[in-house]
Design a protein around this nucleic acid. Structure first.
Length: 870
RNA sequence: GCCGGGGUGGCGGAAUCGGUAGACGCAGCGGACUCAAAAUCCGCCGCCGCAAGGCGUGAGGGUUCGAGUCCCUCUCCCGGCACCA
């Protein structure tokens, strides 16, 4: 055995061994339970970043651990290859999006392979390949024919200078990122997927996802947002609109008697109509069109409104109620109109005070007095409220009032109870080039005609001219000029592409059969995806959109008859971000210039506290910024490749798994990586010393061991149990590593001379190599082969706990007096409560602190502590 | 603004079911080895205090024999908000 740990050599050898033995190939074989372990596939943005390394290492640890449990593991990898950055790169560097993407894939694939991930590369897929997206187009045409995809107007960000649609990300402070022009809203026809048809099922399904983090289920539940309320109508009073009804939805029908105005969205037909011949209103509506479509901006902007000059009748009292346009009313939620009850809704309260609209109290809480001086929490509290100033409804609580008012509205034909969803249908059209073409042909006679199967795929041309203004496909007659599949007349091909979320909504199924050119999915999907993907791993930022769309698509594909599965992901692990400190300098204009953490020396005081930083280049001070997500813009990314070259893949994998649990954010630290490297060198050194004495057969019991050796063997089997639990149930790897470190510390302090001791050392080292193998597979492979010549860690079983090693004669209990820790004492492990209590009272510590006073109460927690209350 | 999560030594974190706060590691300090350095090894290391002891898990309050953990109020930070992926 080499004395020195040389990662470059052992990593190359280990990977060559795995390649030669096809260790990572997944085959559909019976007899073993299957384990499909999937990490969210990357967007090929250029090079691997630390977030990728973390994600794929977590996945690999789980995949390798489950293989050691005897499961049939599939771990595939693919590329989420359509998206905006390729278009931006094409524009900036004059390189075709396709070529840029493929180069990035080649580079990142090599980097992934250098990490030693046990991926079955034969199942690789890229979403930009026609072999992949043809099946997406095929499914699109089925869904279109079923009516699950339909066309309607949608609102987008419009850049009036570049004459193009912008993504929310491309709108910065209300302006286009390239042109700097003020962005406005524009309505264009788009295709939508009817996700709302599955709202009830997507909500109910969350209850079955017991392998998901509770917060993700809760976020999805709130996103879907089921609310039961009342849909009701205000009849327009104006003669021009005679008998026309203005519908609203409310969850607070109990406050209906307090309505003092109704507000509609700027895009509401009534607002648009009323603006004709009303220049002030038209100007206000035009103002509402300014700015982008992002919901966060919408929710934080100043609430403004304008009267339409129209009035409507209160459905129960017949009172004249003014109709306003409000910039805070969403056209896409509910009816695009809301009833306003200023006394009992905080937003309406502020709005009414701003515009001098009446405020009418209709619910009250015992002991509280209503005043117009300012909003109070209880005004909107439906749990304690009863109706007041509400005529026949006075005295009713929330539920009774809603029931009574809904019943009265129903009698008048002016309302009914209704379920409302926050979830909206999914707009999937994008006016972009680098995406999956929408397989529709527009015929003047036949309308929107789906492309027939035998004409699929509609291939995306790769030789295009990207200008940044408008969609390139719409300028390519050779792409859009076609004939109608139905009638044969000249027709125009759809030039929009699909939202890239569509590709990522079903790739996990296709990994089971990426090579099938005759069908979207086949029986291999039934095998690998039975009961769902066993483990899915990815960033918490995908908690809602990607995971909800994937759940939706799985049901669409199920209902198309292709699979028998509703929930795609049985277990979900959401990983935190990788963060690093930031450093910058201000130039004369106050602009920040970011320095990479690698270009900076951090100065500390004599106790190691950071006190400042200087540049390595010029020695001058730099400003220390916050700790933020690694990004290009803050120049605080650390390139994993440099570290792999310096320390080897195992060190990076170990550091990433050790620095924090998977679901928390992880701060990069050079010193931490150095520490991980030191640990691996130490493991190697200790194993080398043991092998130097000659390998033997590992101990299998306590026979012949000294007392300290028995203690070590107990520690070994406790550690095996702990590591099992951490890899399996807890999925928390930092504590598993810490446990192995503790074991090695104990091992070094124990005298292992003698034949029995040497056999125990053999048992410890074999177990350590296997326990670490999922995290640091290269060194694990090498060590195990040295310890057990001819053995292969990649095919080995995970160590099992020997219960006989765990028995103990005595236990140490903590002694508390009045809840404060005062000492400890030892009792036989078999002692009962009264014996423990007596032993506790007999201790010197107890006598000293009780000072002759009697014990009022003694609390005994066996195995833990005794608390004497005086 | 709305939804979700988080705050523990100088730092990353541990404490899994309400029961020893700070495991494990990093940084730092002291020592051994060395001509010297690196590497390695040994020891110390929450704060205040000579000590006894006291204090201590973002802030304030509560429940409990006992709270980092449960409840209430507040605060700061992070993720998402439907066209970034």
């Amino acid at each position: 055995m080499q004395e020195k740990y040389i990662p470059a050599e052992i990593e190359r050898a280990a990977r060559e061994h795995w390649r030669a033995t096809a260790a990572d190939r997944a085959v559909e074989t019976g007899g073993k339970p299957k384990y499909y372990c999937l990490s969210m596939f990357p967007y090929p943005s250029g090079r691997l970043h630390m977030g990728h390394v973390r994600n794929y290492t977590i996945g690999d640890v789980l995949a390798r651990y489950h293989r050691m449990l005897g499961e049939n593991v599939l771990q595939p990898m693919g590329w989420d290859a359509f998206g905006m950055p390729a278009e931006n790169a094409a524009l900036a560097n004059k390189i075709p999006a396709a070529r840029w993407t493929r180069q990035n894939i080649d580079c990142m694939k090599r980097q992934l392979q250098s990490l030693g991930l046990s991926i079955d590369w034969q199942r690789e897929l890229a979403t930009c390949a026609p072999e992949y997206y043809r099946w997406e187009q095929w499914l699109f045409t089925r869904l279109f024919e079923k009516g699950l995809i339909y066309k309607k107007l949608g609102t987008v960000n419009w850049d009036p200078v570049d004459q193009t649609v912008l993504a929310n990300e491309q709108v910065i402070d209300g302006r286009g990122w390239r042109s700097g022009a003020l962005i406005e809203k524009r309505e264009i026809p788009m295709y939508y997927m009817k996700i709302t048809a599955y709202a009830e099922e997507l909500l109910a399904g969350l209850d079955t996802l017991t392998g998901w983090p509770e917060e993700v289920r809760l976020m999805q539940k709130n996103w879907i947002g089921k609310s039961v309320g009342v849909r009701l109508a205000f009849v327009l009073a104006d003669s021009k609109y005679q008998e026309q009804k203005l519908w609203v939805f409310t969850t607070r029908a109990d406050t209906l008697m307090g309505v003092t105005f109704v507000a509609v969205a700027a895009e509401h037909p009534l607002a648009v109509h009323a603006a004709k011949g009303n220049p002030e209103l038209a100007a206000f509506i035009a103002e509402c069109k300014k700015g982008g479509v992002a919901e966060a901006d919408f929710a934080t902007m100043e609430k403004k409104g304008a009267p339409t000059g129209l009035f409507a009748q209160h459905p129960l009292t017949g009172e004249r109620i003014p109709v306003w346009v409000g910039n805070y009313v969403l056209m896409s939620y509910g009816e695009g109109a809301v009833m306003a009850v200023p006394a009992h809704d905080e937003r309406d309260f502020a709005f009414a005070q701003k515009y001098g609209l009446p405020i009418k109290q209709v619910i009250g809480v015992a002991g509280e007095t209503f005043s117009l001086d300012g909003w109070q929490e209880w005004y909107g509290d439906k749990s304690r409220a009863v109706c007041v100033h509400s005529g026949k409804y006075d005295g009713l609580g929330y539920t009774e009032a809603v029931e009574a008012i809904a019943a009265d509205l129903a009698k008048l034909g002016l309302g009914e109870k209704e379920v409302q969803w926050r979830l909206r249908d999914w707009g999937i059209s994008r006016q972009r080039y680098w995406g999956c073409p929408i397989p529709i042909v527009h015929c003047e006679v036949c309308g929107d005609v789906p492309v027939p199967d035998d004409q699929l795929p509609v291939v995306l041309p790769e030789n295009v001219n990207i200008t940044g203004a408008g969609s390139p496909l719409a300028k390519m007659p050779e792409f859009y000029e076609t004939s109608c599949p139905k009638c044969g007349r000249p027709a125009r091909r759809e030039t929009d592409t699909l939202d890239t979320f569509v590709e990522s909504s079903w790739y996990f199924l296709r990994h089971a059969c990426p090579d099938n050119d005759r069908a979207m999915l086949d029986e291999r999907v039934d095998y690998w995806c039975a009961g769902g993907i066993d483990q899915y791993i990815g960033g918490i930022e995908h908690a809602i959109l990607h995971l909800l769309y994937a759940r939706f698509f799985t049901r669409l594909i199920r209902d198309a008859g292709l699979i028998d599965l509703s929930e795609p992901f049985k277990n979900l692990l959401t990983q935190g971000m990788v963060v690093a400190p930031t450093f910058f300098r201000l130039d004369a204009n106050g602009k920040k210039h970011w320095l990479s953490p690698t270009e900076v020396d951090v100065k500390t005081d004599e106790r190691g506290r950071p006190v400042g930083a200087t540049s390595k280049t010029d020695g001058q001070p730099v400003i220390v910024g916050g700790i933020e997500k690694m990004s290009k813009s803050k120049n605080n990314g650390i390139d994993p490749q440099t570290l792999i070259v310096r320390y080897g893949a195992d060190t990076i994998r170990l550091f990433m798994m050790f620095a924090s649990p998977p679901n928390q954010s992880l701060e990069w630290s050079d010193a931490g990586a150095e520490g991980a490297y030191r640990f691996l060198r130490r493991v190697w050194k200790l194993a080398h010393a043991h092998v130097g004495l000659g390998v033997t057969v590992a101990a299998s019991g306590n026979a012949g061991l000294t007392e300290p050796q028995k203690v070590l063997r107990k520690k070994l089997h406790q550690t095996i149990g702990k590591v099992h639990d951490d890899y399996g149930r807890r999925q928390q790897f930092n504590t598993a590593i810490a446990a192995v470190m503790e074991l090695l510390n104990a091992c070094e302090k124990t005298d292992l001379s003698g034949a029995a001791g040497h056999a125990l050392a053999q048992e410890v080292f074999e177990a350590v190599a296997l326990m670490l193998f999922p995290i640091v597979p290269h060194i694990g492979q090498a060590l195990y082969a040295e310890l057990k010549p001819g053995a292969n860690a990649a095919r080995a079983a995970f160590p099992i706990v020997d219960a006989t090693a765990l028995t103990q004669d005595t236990v140490e209990l903590m002694l508390q007096i009045g809840g404060k820790l005062r000492g400890s004492f030892t009792t036989p492990a078999a002692a009962d409560r009264s014996a423990i209590e007596a032993a506790a009272l007999a201790t010197e510590t107890a006598r000293k602190f009780m000072d002759g006073k009697p014990a009022r109460k003694v609390i005994v927690v066996p195995g833990r502590l005794v608390n004497i209350v005086i």
